[in-house]
Amino acid sequence: MVEGRKQNNVLTYILLVLGIMLIILPLYVTFVTAFKSDAQSSKSFFTLPIPIYLESFKEVLTNERYWKAFINTVYITAIVLAGNIIIMPSMSYAVARKMPTSMGYRLVYYFLLLGIFIPFQVKMMPLVKLLSALNMMNPTGLAILCISSSTCESVFLFVGYMGAIPPDMEEAAWIDGAGTLRTYSSVVFPLLKPMLATVLIKQGLWIWNDFMLPLITLNRGWQDWTLTLFQYNFQTEYSINYSLTFATFVASMLPLLIFYCFMQKSIIGGLTSGAVKS
């Protein structure tokens, strides 16, 4: 028994390390290419950057557009996540609890589900017209738009999760004299936290890395750009220069990588603390 388990662990390690190599290799190449001159890269893509070439990276990091894009991206992501925290769990709570008895809420739920299946292109141009009519072609406008767009998926995930939480505890809170708001904030919301973590991480990653929505709404000047737009526009301008191209890749993914390194425990912990319980 003990021996068998040991052998299995060796296999586990081998498989996991293989997987890590698959994950790391492209990242390794990206990083070393960013820190090598083109001449160095053209000799071999795999060697370490010796001597290290910092010019490309410096060029990206000293670009004021990069920092503005960074700030915009943080700003948009923060609003969207905050909106998700405030709107989605409470809405899902209402929908999940009323769905069994109320036709209206059931319709609302299916109405929301519908959104998951609508291809983006259908609403793209109308969206542009709508946003510009409301003077919302700016980061704040995009953030509000993203909250709206995340409704269907977030509610879908929350409602599914709520279904597995028995209403006993809410009943108890009610008997203790708590109102709906109190019941929600002190009983339901804490129960939803694991799923909230999942939703926030998923939406946060989506917003941070989204390309299409910023492209169509924030193209009125670099002051509005997000990191993906910065990277895309910068890279098309210097597409022939690998070093600079990869430096923009690195620069645009670096903030999130650093954030992830620091928050890794809470992110993985949040996701695995039972995001989906049966």
Binding site: M125, V128, K129, I216, N219, Y232, N233, Q235, T236
Partner: peptide, 23 residues
């Protein structure tokens, strides 16, 4: 004069025209 550029002219010009906010 603020010089901006885009790698996806087709999309950008179209959306800017649709919103009546051409550069």
């Amino acid at each position: 004069i603020d010089v901006t550029s885009t790698g996806d002219g087709a999309t950008v010009v179209r959306t800017r025209a649709a919103s009546n906010e051409l550069p």
